[in-house]
């Protein structure tokens, strides 16, 4: 079943185009990573899904409803980011109790388990938590709510790496135990690639690609060798990225179109390197000017 469907989705803020003709769909019970550079439109897309914003053009359907101002959709979504606000009158303990009334799948045991694990003070106020702790607390709510559609927008901002690892682990475990549709936006792909199933990569408000992580790992090949050899060898291939090193050596990333590594390894000067997902995404979403090196060449 398709949970989210976007058709030619466009969202502009005044003259700035945040999303441009985005068409995509997200299937039920998938853990999708929404990846993109800063300003690629990740948050805008998530807010459109949550019904906070109205698309300027195009159509979005969540659970076959227009999410904007829909109680039905809202009841089945939880949107976790670091702008969540809770009344100052509530202690953290109160929040867990009060929020539970809103979500029928709420798992209080999980909530309190995580709450104790991260050793929160039940009497503390949400507003007085540090940024990282706020993110952690919001994450607890996001997991415990067990909403059919759970959205995490940059959930790990401010968390230290230990907590981040715990969070991803908790997310994966709870997802396996209680499968649901989860969208996780992040710019730290290296940390999340192990738990994601699908990746939706955005570039400048458009869909760059939407594939499963397994497919994506096979997406590209990296070659390193003397500049001339590499360029010759790669004639006719789709080069995603090149990077020059000292002594005339060149690193190139190409799209893997049915090529086998054997074809390259015949040439002894060439070295075949794996391309990490994170790097791949950077290459895919990078501007064509040749990256930061280009600035220094001039």
């Amino acid at each position: 079943m398709t949970v989210i469907q976007g058709e030619n989705l466009t969202k502009s803020y005044g003259k700035t185009l945040a999303l441009d003709n985005l068409t995509f769909q997200i299937e039920e019970n998938k853990l999708t990573g929404l990846i993109g550079r800063n300003g690629a439109g990740k948050t805008t897309l998530l807010k459109l899904i949550a019904g906070y914003l109205k698309p300027s053009r195009g159509e979005i359907n969540v659970f076959s409803h227009n999410p904007f101002d829909s109680l039905q959709v809202s009841a089945n979504i939880i949107f976790i980011d670091n702008h969540m606000a809770f009344p100052t009158a509530f202690s953290l303990d109160d929040i867990l109790t009060e929020v539970a009334h809103y979500y029928q799948n709420w798992n209080a045991k999980l909530a309190h388990g995580l709450f104790d694990y991260f050793s929160f003070n039940p009497k503390q106020r949400h507003g007085s938590l540090s940024k990282g702790n706020q993110s952690t607390f919001n994450m607890i709510i996001g997991l415990a709510a067990r909403c059919p559609l759970t959205i995490f927008d940059e959930p790990t901002s401010g968390m230290d790496s230990a907590v981040r690892k715990d969070f991803y682990r908790a997310l994966l475990k709870d997802y396996l135990e209680y499968p649901r549709t989860i969208i996780l936006s992040s710019h730290l792909l290296s940390e999340v690639e192990d738990i994601l199933e699908d990746i939706l990569l955005l570039r400048d408000g458009t869909k760059c690609l939407h594939q499963s992580v397994l497919e994506l790992k096979e997406y590209a090949l990296g070659l390193k060798g003397p500049k001339q050899t590499v360029l010759e060898r790669l004639k006719g291939q789709e080069i995603l990225h090149t990077e020059e090193f000292a002594q005339g050596s060149l690193y190139a990333v190409i799209k893997n179109q049915g090529l086998t590594s054997q074809q390259f390894l015949k040439h002894e000067d060439l070295e075949l390197l794996p391309v990490s997902l994170e790097d791949l995404c950077i290459y895919l979403t990078g501007n064509a000017k040749g990256g930061i090196d280009h600035v220094f060449k001039q």
């Binding site: 906070y52 101002d69 829909s70 109680l71 949107f79 606000a85 809770f86 009344p87 809103y102």
Partner: peptide, 9 residues
Amino acid sequence: TMDFTLVTN
């Protein structure tokens, strides 16, 4: 924001 943190329209 407090409203739209949780279920609402």
